[in-house]
Nucleic acid binder design. Structure first.
Lengths: 330, 330
DNA sequence: CTGTTAGCGCCTTCAG
DNA sequence: CTGAAGGCGCTAACAG
């Protein structure tokens, strides 16, 4: 591999001069610059960002920790992050947390060892050991998706989104609304969305019946099972079901179809996420669009700002959302 | 940032000794090891992979160039790649080619400047300048998705997949099969799949009618428009349509529904890719499963083998596929 | 078992 | 306008 040294000697100048033409810093005679450029061209020399980073203590790489790689949400977010990063001259190193806290922490450390300039964490929990791990890090971290105390974050308005969707269902005259949630370690999805649902009901003086509230695990299959549990355990059958995720909702839709319940006539269904399938299932699924790409962009911008300002102040951005009422809710 | 030097002096040993306990290389007395470990623990020292890489000329980072980040195929492949890379102690730096050749080349160079150990390219074309760029690179590259001469690659069996799906359609007694393809710069998708379709027809002595063959650009909307063109320009209406992509097929499905043509009764539809929507549209879409995750894994393995063997021999792996005949084809 | 020495490829004072 | 010298954090001979 050809180095700056080779270029220097081939061009008959010092390494310093080569460095200067490379970075456009300081004065270099037109003649010298030309010689150097020629040699670079001939040799196909590519400066090592690695060595540069060691010297300048800036790698221009940002680490991104995803809960799972092949997920619609994650890839939309990654797309948004990449847009901003690419524009600002950064590259992105991806790390997979596989939905496990330990893995999340492990990846944080791995990224720190790579000396990335900053880390974006798509968080799925707010566990103490995670917060501790972040604090002990010497690399700036911003979170997306969960409101982590002590660091800047971009979050979705889970509570209001869920509440508004539930209200929209109520407004259609539906009174017996079931709910499919997830485990509560995921605070944003497991707790906030559920609270939004509960509060919307309570505001109308309604109480969900025993058995109307079930849990899944983000898969369509679990949505199917949850819907089945609701149906079989409830005395009065619900006339609507709100799932915290489109996949769960699609699973619910499938169960209803399987037992011959008409959607939306008998039982309406709604989800959150505006996944691509939501548009193409029959009936098309009512859902909430979170604009993940934009969220990714905002998060990247937040991180970059932090890198350039050296300020320690924490910032919190709450993303807006958009209700999409489609055929599954009439 | 604490360095190996700090650890050494705090532990009262030399940097070499610290390095040795870090890498488990050479002999270190139990006593010294313990002292060092303690100090590392206390200080929260994290060795710089960056400096290590500069010295060892191995970064343990692999670059992955995707045509687009938020794509089902890309993210499945990335998932597979990550599985293998993670298992073998590598990390993945993602680069977005935005479906442009120049950007593809630019990313190759950028990754080279980062001194990644190898590059995986999800290729969408076989243009000469791309091949040239790859050859001038001093980093091993393997391709996925296109059969690039001169480098190792993992490819899908596009020709046979398309041909077999077309044959499956013919076997259902459909005789007038339309086709929605894409531009030919994407050799695998644009040329090979089309050839499979044409050859299957020809083997049965059939010739597609003028207007039955249209092009789209990977979006559902373009599939819709292509289907419309087929419908409006053909004298005899097709009784089946084969699209080279699920999204195109879904667009076609939408058009047919819009004009009140029954699927599959009047006109059957098939795609390729086994996208998630294919399972949930109505009627469910017949398609070909390419097992992208496995392809990603194989590609990563191919690259790692190449890194460890220092051999220059090129290898070509052809992935298998699986026909999924669903409701859209009866 | 341990330390000394020498660089990996680059940038950055500091003197010319 | 240009070069020499030093060092970023780490590992790899090579002597002890």
């Amino acid at each position: 591999m050809v180095t700056i040294r080779d270029i220097a000697s081939l061009a008959g100048v010092s390494r310093t001069t080569v460095s200067r033409v490379l970075n456009g810093s300081g004065y270099v005679s037109e003649q010298a610059r030309k010689r150097v450029m020629e040699v670079i061209e001939e040799t196909g020399y590519v400066p090592s960002e690695q060595a540069k980073a060691l010297r300048t203590k800036k790698s221009n790489v940002i680490g991104v920790i995803l809960p799972k790689i092949s997920t619609e949400t994650a890839s939309r977010v990654a797309d948004g992050i990449d847009t901003v990063l690419n524009r600002e001259g950064y590259q992105m190193i991806l790390a997979n947390a596989k939905l496990k806290v330990e893995k999340e922490i492990e990846q944080l450390k791995l990224l720190e060892s790579r000396r990335v300039d900053g880390i974006i964490l798509l968080a799925t929990n707010k566990e103490d050991r995670l917060l501790k791990a972040i604090e002990s890090l010497s690399v700036p971290v911003v979170a997306l998706g969960q409101d982590l105390p002590s660091i800047s974050s971009v979050i979705y308005d889970d509570y209001h989104a869920a509440r508004e969707m539930t209200e929209a269902i109520l407004k259609k005259g539906r009174n017996r609304i079931g709910f499919i949630g997830v485990y509560e370690s995921d605070h944003a999805v497991g707790v906030l969305r559920k609270q939004g649902y509960l509060d919307a009901l309570e505001a109308e003086g309604k109480t969900p019946e025993e058995g109307w509230i079930q849990k899944g695990d983000f898969t369509a299959e679990s949505g199917y099972r949850a819907m089945k549990s609701i149906w079989e355990s409830a005395d009065r059958k619900p006339d609507a079901v709100f799932a915290v995720t489109d996949r769960l909702a699609v699973g619910a839709l499938e169960y209803l179809r399987a037992i011959g319940v008409k959607t939306p006539e008998e039982t309406a269904v709604a989800g959150i996420g505006n996944s691509e399938i939501s548009k193409y299932v029959t009936p098309s699924l009512s859902t909430v669009d979170y604009n993940n790409e934009e969220a990714g962009m905002r998060t990247a911008e937040l991180l970059l700002e932090r890198l350039n300002s050296s300020g320690e102040n924490r910032e919190k951005i709450v993303m807006g959302y958009r209700l999409l009422i489609r055929d599954s809710l009439r």
